[in-house]
Measured scan of single mutants.
Amino acid sequence: MEVRTIKVFTTVDNINLHTQVVDMSMTYGQQFGPTYLDGADVTKIKPHNSHEGKTFYVLPNDDTLRVEAFEYYHTTDPSFLGRYMSALNHTKKWKYPQVNGLTSIKWADNNCYLATALLTLQQIELKFNPPALQDAYYRARAGEAANFCALILAYCNKTVGELGDVRETMSYLFQHANLDSCKRVLNVVCKTCGQQQTTLKGVEAVMYMGTLSYEQFKKGVQIPCTCGKQATKYLVQQESPFVMMSAPPAQYELKHGTFTCASEYTGNYQCGHYKHITSKETLYCIDGALLTKSSEYKGPITDVFYKENSYTTTIK
């Protein structure tokens, strides 16, 4: 009895394709271990004539594949690729409408935090270190965002349907971005203890939790000093293409032309909904596939993004 075979390709990165001759009487799992086709788990399936010449994702289970996976995804987590594939199996079914010149995501599976993050990423200057993220990001900007969303979920250790947080998501993504040249110098002034300067680099240099107003941050924000008295913390120097200011959701007025974009969060910790506000020729609110415009805006804002380049204080 002759062994019926077909020729397929296996890959971990969709760049390096490895030619395989597979036995049609055995499952993919018996031949390769966990195997995925377009995100779908085909591990328990036997090869079919229609699979001839198709590319299958496999887990990096030998040295060659491990090197290829690390170079593309910059992670050695053995569960990463499987999590990416199972997320992709959902995100490829989502709709990605162009809204006001940006790629958004039609609401499904509690994905409003991903839509808000995706919209924000198209408006701030950011370059990702893992080629996987950078490639998928370019495709997302062009309207094909399924891979990018699935990668975000995998890097953030999230599953489809789980509630997510924009600030946490951005923080994970910033860790995989090139923020080497970003720098922030802060000064804390206390009447009792004097003053202390701190220099922050990388992710810490672009994120701040405690106030939404970048102007206020430049002037000074009140913080408790270690001595128990009130101290003032203010920005001395900022070198970065953008800054992200966050605070627990509270009524906040966004003035046209003073910011790049913002995240609105309605609801409580267990259950809520994100919308995205962007400042173009007027203010726009993007909620999944829905767009509304207004000249002014007041609502429960939790993150505001500002364009920056270089700032030095005039406070002496």
Score class of each variant (00 low, 15 high):
His51Cys: 08
Tyr155Lys: 05
Leu133Ser: 04
Val99His: 12
Gln30Val: 12
Asn61Lys: 11
Ser171His: 15
Tyr137Trp: 10
Lys191Met: 10
Thr76Pro: 14
Gly33Met: 01
Ala69Ser: 10
Gln134Gly: 06
Gly272Lys: 00
Ala145Thr: 02
Cys227Gly: 01
Val12Phe: 06
Cys227Trp: 01
Ser240Met: 01
Met207His: 06
Pro248Trp: 10
Phe80Tyr: 04
Asn61His: 10
Thr314Phe: 15
Gln20His: 14
Tyr214Ala: 01
Val8Cys: 13
Arg4Leu: 13
Thr258Asp: 13
Val185Pro: 03
Leu119Thr: 05
Thr211Val: 11
Glu264Tyr: 00
His256Ile: 15
Gly210Val: 00
Lys158Gly: 02
Thr232Lys: 10
Lys293Ile: 09
Trp94Val: 01
Gly299Phe: 03
Asp109Glu: 10
His273Leu: 01
Cys225Ile: 00
Gly288His: 04
Tyr265Pro: 00
Tyr214Trp: 09
Ala145Met: 02
Thr313Cys: 15
Lys298Ser: 12
Phe148Ala: 01
Gln196His: 12
Glu52Gly: 14
Thr192Ala: 11
Val188Ile: 09
Val221Leu: 11
Gly299Ser: 05
Thr260Tyr: 06
Met209Asn: 13
Glu125Ile: 04
Thr192Arg: 12
Tyr269Pro: 15
Ile15Asp: 05
Leu173Lys: 02
Asp62Thr: 12
Lys280Leu: 14
Cys285Gln: 15
Val58Ile: 11
Gly194Ser: 03
Thr11Glu: 04
Tyr113Ala: 03
Thr292Ser: 15
Thr258Cys: 07
Ile105Phe: 03
His48Ser: 14
Ala142Cys: 15
Thr314Leu: 15
Thr91Val: 08
Pro78Met: 09
Gln195Ile: 11
Thr116His: 06
Cys149Leu: 11
Ser50Val: 13
Tyr265Asp: 02
Asp41Ile: 11
Pro300Ile: 14
Thr278Ser: 12
Val188Phe: 08
Ile286Pro: 00
Cys156Val: 05
Ile286Asp: 02
Ser310His: 15
Ala177Gly: 06
Gly288Lys: 04
Ala142His: 14
Glu2Thr: 11
Asn309Val: 11
Val22Ala: 14
Phe217Gly: 03
Trp107Tyr: 04
Glu162Met: 08
Gln98Asp: 13
Thr292Gln: 11
Val188Leu: 09
Leu133Ile: 05
Lys93Ile: 04
Tyr265Trp: 00
Pro34Ser: 13
Phe242Met: 00
Leu254Gln: 00
Thr211Pro: 02
Leu118Trp: 03
Ala231Trp: 00
Asp13Trp: 02
Val8Tyr: 04
Tyr113Gln: 04
Thr292Phe: 12
